[in-house]
Structures are given as structure tokens and as C-alpha cells.
């Protein structure tokens, strides 16, 4: 329902408003203001947020769909896609499981240091992506604290898959825990306590009572975690070493192509990543609607 500003009491401005039909004029003014605000907001969003997206697909397809698909079929492109999927397939489940464990102990128990622990879990969100990569180089890089030891034992972490996974885990660390903790605290422990008095053990309580109640929120966290894991650039850029065909994830491959003036290739891979973003946004809308239902007061 349109909510224009409330009409004023007629007496309030009767002495001021000279023209014949003041009420009519005020209404026009309100409608005008409304249109102006909507128009301004939408054009700003169109230029700032939509135009870049349009450009990506336009550029990718500027020489036709065949050329764009060809760029994606390159062996290096395939290797980037595979690597991105591998990194996400390791980092996301670990963060999801540990995030759920964190939500259980933070959302269901009172203990000293609980607030601190919550803050620590949120911490990666306020750290620059580059620093999120840097910390792993400081630990495991050639000059890092464990660099010499790793070198002697011929273990590669930085400039290899483990480094990419660790950096990705750091930046996607809070997603699942965060979306679950607030929900679990809101829902309260009554259903779990009821299950307990009925004789259920811990695992039964979790699987039969807790999990169905937090399922959609968990999926939501996993969705955002995955989108970030696949799209992360800064943190993995630092630990990747940029070895083509080996340690370039899709976003890093976009960078490499762009810097080599391989315009179509860069935008084709970018378009693929954009589609991931669009699908993520669409699913997110659906999930938010679902979670609202879970959030609405318990029975």
C-alpha cells in the first residue's frame, strides 16, 4: 500500500495556504515528491549497481556466444573452475560443521567468555581480505614461522591448494555460525528441553528437533559462505602464487586474463561468476522468506 505522508489537519495551515484548493495541491506535491524519490533512488541503483552487471554480459558476448563459450572451454579455464570448486568443497563443509557446533554451544549455554567467543567468530568479517591472506603467508610462507620446517619436509601450503583453502576458510569463517546463533537464541531451548524430558539423547535432539528448526538458516549461511568462497579474490591472491593452470581460482584467472588484455576471456569467466552471484541472490530471497517463518514465534 502506498504510504504517502499523512495529510495535514485542514485548520493547521488554513491561514497560510492561500490558493483555492489547498488539499488538492498538497496531494499533488506528495505524489510528485514520491515519484522524485523513487526515480532518484532507482536511477542511482541502475547506474551504480546494474550497469556493471549489464556490461559484463555485453562484453562477454560482444563477439558472440561461441567465442565466449570457447574461452570457458580453455584448459586453463577448466582448471580454474575445478580449483574453485575444490576449494569451496573443502572450506564450506568444514566451516558449516564447526559453525553449527559453535551455534550450539553459544546459542544454548551460558558460560563466561561467551560474548568474547562470539566476537572472535565475527572477527574475520572486519579484517581486510589481503590481511586474511597475509596471515597465512606469515605462518607458512618461505620466510614464515613454519616456512623452513615445511620446506625440509617438502610440504607446500602457501602457493598451493592448502593455502587457498585456509585463506578461504578465514574469510568465510563467520557465515554459518552467525546466521545460526541469532536464530537459535531467538527460538529458545524449550523444544530441546521437551525432547530431553521425553528421553531423547543429544544426537536425537539435534537431528530430530534442532536441525529441522534451523535447517533453512543453515542453508542460508552455507549459501553465502559458498558464494564468498567461490568469489574470494584478495585473500587467495596473496597465497596463490599465481601459477597458471595450477593455483588460479576463477577470480584470479579473471585477473590474469584481464591483465593480459584477453578481454573476451576475462569477461566470459566474469559472466560465469556473475551468474553464480545472481543465483545466490535469487536463492537468498527464497530462503529469507522461509526463515521468516521459522523465526515467527514458536508454537
Amino acid at each position: 500500500m502506498p504510504r504517502s505522508h499523512p495529510p495535514r489537519h485542514p485548520d493547521a495551515d488554513a491561514p497560510i495556504a492561500g490558493p483555492a484548493r489547498p488539499a488538492q495541491r498538497r496531494w499533488d506535491l506528495a505524489a510528485l515528491r514520491r515519484r522524485l524519490a523513487i526515480g532518484l533512488a532507482l536511477s542511482a541503483m541502475a547506474i551504480l549497481l546494474v550497469l556493471p552487471l549489464v556490461l559484463i554480459f555485453t562484453e562477454a558476448l560482444s563477439k558472440g556466444l561461441d567465442i565466449a563459450l570457447e574461452a570457458l572451454a580453455e584448459p586453463e579455464a577448466w582448471s580454474a573452475i575445478r580449483l574453485t570448486l575444490t576449494v569451496a568443497a573443502i572450506a564450506v563443509p568444514i566451516n558449516a560443521i564447526c559453525g553449527t557446533a559453535a551455534a550450539w554451544c553459544i546459542g544454548r549455554f551460558e558460560f563466561p567468555g561467551r560474548a568474547l567467543l562470539t566476537t572472535l567468530i565475527d572477527l574475520p568479517f572486519s579484517v581486510s581480505p589481503v590481511i586474511s591472506g597475509l596471515v597465512w603467508v606469515l605462518l607458512f610462507g618461505a620466510n614464515g614461522y613454519f616456512g623452513a620446517w615445511l620446506d625440509r619436509h617438502d610440504v607446500r601450503i602457501v602457493f598451493a591448494l592448502p593455502g587457498l583453502v585456509l585463506a578461504t576458510m578465514f574469510v568465510t569463517f563467520p557465515f554459518v555460525a552467525r546466521s545460526l546463533i541469532s536464530l537459535m537464541r531467538e527460538q529458545g531451548a524449550a523444544e530441546e528441553e521437551a525432547a530431553l524430558t521425553l528421553g531423547a539423547n543429544g544426537w536425537q535432539i539435534f537431528v530430530r528437533v534442532t536441525l529441522p528448526n534451523i535447517f533453512w538458516a543453515m542453508l542460508y549461511g552455507v549459501l553465502l559462505c559458498n558464494a564468498r568462497a567461490m568469489g574470494e579474490f584478495g585473500a587467495v591472491a596473496v597465497v596463490s602464487g599465481h601459477i597458471r593452470g595450477q593455483t588460479l581460482t576463477m577470480p584470479l584467472y579473471v585477473e590474469a586474463l584481464f591483465n593480459d588484455y584477453e578481454w573476451i576471456g576475462a569477461f566470459s569467466v566474469a559472466a560465469l561468476l556473475s551468474m553464480l552471484a545472481l543465483v545466490t541472490l535469487a536463492l537468498r530471497m527464497l530462503l529469507e522468506w522461509r526463515i521468516e517463518r521459522d523465526r515467527s514465534a514458536g508454537v
Binding site: P52, L53, I56, P129, A227, M230, G231, E232, F233, G234, M250, P251, L252, V254, E255, A270, L273, S274, L276, A277, L278, T280, L281, R284
Partner: peptide, 8 residues
């Protein structure tokens, strides 16, 4: 949602 490199 958009990967930063893509936006870049």
C-alpha cells in the same frame, strides 16, 4: 554477491 574481481 558479486565477486570483487568481477566488480573491479
Amino acid at each position: 554477491a558479486l565477486p570483487t574481481a568481477v566488480a573491479g
